[in-house]
Write a protein that binds this DNA or RNA. Structure first.
Length: 110
DNA sequence: GCGCTTATCGCAC
DNA sequence: GTGCGATAAGCGC
């Protein structure tokens, strides 16, 4: 407990992302009704539901890996890629090799 | 085409 | 009340 409505919204939206799919901070921010993807990153960094919230499924709008657990680069990022690849998401040159796997919240409403 | 700066929202201290 | 954060977009060179 202690999580705000905004954070709860971010976690819920993130859980909507199926395995083998990734979403971007911008899409996530838009899904929660926020115009600042950085606010989403804040919630993910402070995410009290680490195993429940697949924060590693969130990447930058540039399809780059972005950050993970409070690090924009490092061993954590490498692990993040490994986790995504384990789910069927492949990364090349530090970027999503298949933008088609970019989950779209609008697609969920479609 | 690449790089840097500015803008923006929320959370934590 | 202030600072920081896992970004995004725009403008300049």
């Amino acid at each position: 407990m202690g999580d705000t409505e905004f954070q709860k919204r971010v976690y819920e939206a993130l859980m909507l992302v199926p395995r083998g799919y990734v979403t971007t901070y911008k899409a996530l921010a838009a899904a929660v009704g926020c115009g600042s993807p950085r606010a989403v990153g804040q919630a993910l960094k402070r995410n009290p539901y680490a195993p429940e919230v697949p924060c590693h499924r969130v990447i930058a709008s540039d399809l780059s890996i972005g950050g993970f657990q409070g690090a924009s680069a490092g061993a954590r990022i490498s692990k993040k890629q490994a986790m995504l690849e384990a789910e069927g998401v492949h990364f090349v040159d530090g970027r999503l090799s298949t933008p088609d796997q970019c989950f779209r919240f609008s697609d969920a409403s479609r």
